[in-house]
């Protein structure tokens, strides 16, 4: 009598017995998994989805059989439960449909204990969340982090530094004579240079480092767990990488250089903005000394 409802639902519904045999595979599951209910019903779920035979999934199912509770399989933690493709419009962005799943008990009847799994497609929500988050933390032009995000990370990393007494370093860097690029070739060319400049810097950094556009043509690298000597090496490497690179816009090819200021935290610093200020001083000294240079401040 509930057959129609189960098949009409815009939610995946799977019923499993204690041997992990599939008792029910609704139309939604057929449509999204490309597995017919007549093919999978009566068979072991793991024959079709061997990757589900893992500790977490088994534990969740056992928990429901043992305690008759509900177990939630959240997208945030697991991304998905069933590795099935997303709807066509999200195949570019996601390999698998993002899911919120719940596993719950079914009151036993005729000696057979069963649990149900409901599968909700949340791919579109995750997609928009990702977009929103990116827009919030990234600079639209260069696609590296924006100033706002940098401020929050600086604060967090500085607190970590205070707690564990591990060093952290910041490098402030600025493109030399950037105004002339804009004046001579126009702002579109300037934009291209900003993009390729940030890409070159980004390629030189570790995964744990943060690169942000501080404002205009000024950038900031935050290097967690980095003592002064290493920070200086990184800064020198960045300077050389920029000096050696070519920047192209339409048929124009140009070379740029950059000035850098480096500062590493010590016990005398009270907060992250002090570090930025000091690194910034180094940057201006580098400018004064003729640019294309690295200056360390303390």
């Amino acid at each position: 009598m509930y057959e129609e409802v189960v098949n009409f639902l815009n939610v995946g519904l799977v019923i499993l017995d204690e041997q992990m045999n599939v008792r029910k595979w609704n139309k939604w599951m057929e449509r999204h998994s490309n597995i017919k209910s007549s093919d999978i019903e009566g068979k072991n779920l793991f024959l079709f989805f061997p990757m589900l035979d893992n500790e977490h999934f088994n534990r969740s199912i056992k928990s429901v059989f043992t305690f008759s509770n509900m177990v939630f399989y959240s997208q945030k933690l697991h991304r998905y439960c069933f590795p099935i493709p997303p709807v066509a419009s999200f195949r570019q962005q996601f390999e698998f449909m993002q899911q919120n799943c719940a596993i719950g008990p079914i009151t036993p009847e005729e000696n057979s204990n069963c649990v149900f799994i409901s599968i909700q497609d949340v791919t579109n929500i995750v997609y928009y969340e990702d977009q929103l988050r990116d827009m919030n933390i990234k600079d639209a032009l260069t696609n590296i982090y924006n100033r706002r995000f940098l401020d929050s990370i600086l604060d967090r990393e500085f607190k970590r530094h205070m707690r564990y007494k591990h060093p952290m370093s910041v490098i402030m860097l600025d493109i030399d004579h950037f105004k002339e690029v804009n004046d001579q070739y126009g702002h579109q060319c300037g934009d291209e240079v900003l993009k390729s400049f940030s890409a070159i810097i980004h390629a030189q950094l570790r995964d744990v480092d943060f690169l942000a556009r501080y404002g205009g043509e000024e950038f900031c690298c935050l290097l967690p767990e980095t003592p002064p000597e290493s920070a200086l090496l990184v800064a020198k490497r960045l300077r050389v990488a920029i000096e050696e690179s070519n920047h192209k816009w339409q048929d124009i090819e140009l070379k740029i250089t950059s000035s850098l200021g480096v500062c590493t935290s010590t016990s005398k610093h009270q907060n992250a903005s002090e570090l930025i200020e000091l690194a910034d001083k180094g940057l201006y000294q580098a400018k004064k000394q003729g640019r294309n240079a690295v200056i360390v401040t303390q």
Binding site: S63, F67, N69, M70, V71, F72, S74
Partner: peptide
Amino acid sequence: LLELGNILIGA
């Protein structure tokens, strides 16, 4: 925390 809580409370 949700998962652990869910299991303990559920149990």
